[in-house]
Design a protein around this nucleic acid. Structure first.
Lengths: 230, 230
DNA sequence: CGCCCATTTGAAAATAATCAATGGAAGTGG
DNA sequence: CCACTTCCATTGATTATTTTCAAATGGGCG
């Protein structure tokens, strides 16, 4: 069943795309996909789909942010991914979604019917290859995050997280649309630990905090030192 | 460069496959792949390839075990996967391998030249689909392991690990060819913690230990309780 | 302006890591 | 074949990091 998306707005796709910067660069040769996508907008905290739902659609984020969550039996939550502009959602799903997806901040997306994507991929080798490449990239990111979760201290995890967000945004001014709880559930830390580490980084003048959801990297070298990643 | 594999033995593939039980069931429609594979045997602790190596080959484990490792700058190690009979190695690689692979115990594998696999996949839709499905499965497993590494206690991690190994082996007698260090680096725990948890499980009669690398699940229900996974 | 909720900060507790020593199995060489 | 060496695993004591519990602060939104 396709629950969620109750408040979304659908707009015919292909025309009037808000011209998101750098979108095409992330996945080349995907222009044909635009023809079969529908633009939707989803409000903060709305679910896109739930773990175990039949996977009917794929999504691509244009603006905003989405979190991919898994719940443990006793209620603990793990945020596997933050999907940011340019990211695809759900490509790894077989028949059912392996995680639930919720919108972190008001988000504009393209929604693709699965069967249309598959038909297109069967027809055009370039599309199929691009999709495989997106999966490859995700797998690679997943492996890095496993090493982070398995081996790194709280400070190292957050330093890496900030650097990763900076890479995605392309500037040293970073928007963090998600809550501290989201970040904690993503990095395997409690909200308090996340807060303490951020405070420490501010005290050491490694980051500056403009507002709750907007920080700036003041000393990138120091941050890279803290991040340690090979 | 293709380092490693110094001690391997190559045997013409396709014929005389040791008929590994249940292999075909893992990936269907892959029979055509056998035609382009070469059987190799690799000894304990030999490297298959290193992180950053050009990805020239894919591998499929027939018997034995391989570990996929990532190294952090300061030498800490993370074992992302144990590849067991039936598992493919390196499918997620783009141009270069994202992790290094070392043989845990004497292992028989099939080695496929990348370009041959790609050519075959471009030609036969069924092959391409199978490869994508293998990647999907891996991505799904990676997400589960992230949740494990991010949220679970030492006991929960090891309970899940044992159950996962039991699922793969299909019996409640489980062979653990890897060392405690390998298990620790896989689960984000130290060797001492791994050892203590195993001892605890033995004391509580949840597992029995035949030998260092061979355990048996005595009380599966208790183990599932401890594992908690949703 | 004031309430509410997320965040921050502090103190205590718990889990796992580290340090250290012992035990035991596998492999080597005489 | 046995003794010796080496590596790996186990166990114990201590330490450190992070979590948990608790309270206060502050920003955003009605």
């Amino acid at each position: 069943m396709f629950r969620g998306l109750q408040v979304q707005t659908e707009i015919a796709a292909g025309r009037h795309l808000p011209e998101p910067k750098g979108l095409g660069s992330i996945v080349d040769g995907m222009a044909a996909l635009d023809q079969i996508g529908v633009i939707i907008t989803v409000k903060r905290d709305e679910p896109l789909f739930f773990e175990g739902d039949a996977a009917e659609f794929y999504f691509k984020v244009i603006s905003g942010a989405v979190r991919g969550c898994k719940l443990l039996a006793d209620g603990r939550r793990h945020v596997g991914n933050f999907f940011l502009p340019g990211d695809f959602i759900g490509l790894d799903a077989a028949e059912y979604h392996a995680f639930s997806a919720e919108v972190v901040a008001d988000t504009i997306m393209v929604r693709y019917a699965r069967w249309k994507v598959h038909a297109l991929a069967d027809q055009e080798l370039a599309i199929a290859r691009s999709l495989v490449n997106v999966m490859r990239t995700e797998l690679c990111a997943a492996r890095n995050r496993m090493a982070l979760l398995g081996q790194m201290s709280a400070m190292e995890r957050i330093a890496n997280f900030i650097l990763m967000m900076a890479d995605k945004s392309g500037t040293r001014d970073i928007s963090l649309p998600m809550t501290r709880t989201d970040i904690g559930d993503h990095l395997g830390l409690t909200i308090e630990t996340v807060s303490r580490v951020f405070s420490r980084l501010k005290k050491d003048h490694i980051i500056e905090q403009q507002s709750l959801h907007h920080i700036r990297i003041a000393d990138r070298d120091a941050l890279v030192d803290l991040a340690d990643f090979s």
